[in-house]
């Protein structure tokens, strides 16, 4: 990204419910888990991350989106790998 374009990035009104397409590979922080699957919130969009257990909570994980419903802003995806930590680990 050029120096100038960095200044122009983000001059827009972003939806509180971003949408995804099946097949998208995204990186998200997992907020909570039920023991076997995790839940990530991207804004007010909810994603169920299959296979994201307690060890992934508050970690940044790579997820492949498998299904997504635009009308309810919910979707599912499969866990690919853990790629990062929270800024603060407690």
């Amino acid at each position: 990204m050029s120096l100038f374009s960095k200044y122009l990035k983000g001059w827009r009104f972003r939806s509180s419910e971003p949408t995804f397409e099946p097949g998208d590979e995204i990186s998200v922080f997992v907020a909570e888990t039920n023991g076997t699957d995790g839940r990530a919130y991207v804004g007010d969009t909810r994603l169920t991350v299959e296979g994201a257990g307690p060890e992934t909570v508050e970690k940044r994980v790579r997820v492949r989106v498998t299904e997504f419903d635009d009308s309810s802003a919910t979707g599912r995806g499969e866990l690919l790998e853990v790629v990062g930590e929270s800024s603060y680990t407690g």
Binding site: A31, E32, T33, N34, G35, T36, D37, G38, R39, Y41, D44, R46, T48, G53, P54, E55, V57, E58, E67, F68, D69, S72, T74, G75, R76
Partner: peptide, 23 residues
């Protein structure tokens, strides 16, 4: 939005998400 009152799109029965890392 915390807690697990909202279900995933296909009505996943195990909808009891909790925060925490297991530690």
């Amino acid at each position: 939005m915390s807690g697990g009152s909202d279900g995933p799109p296909d009505g996943d029965p195990t909808d009891t998400f909790v925060e925490g890392t297991g530690d």
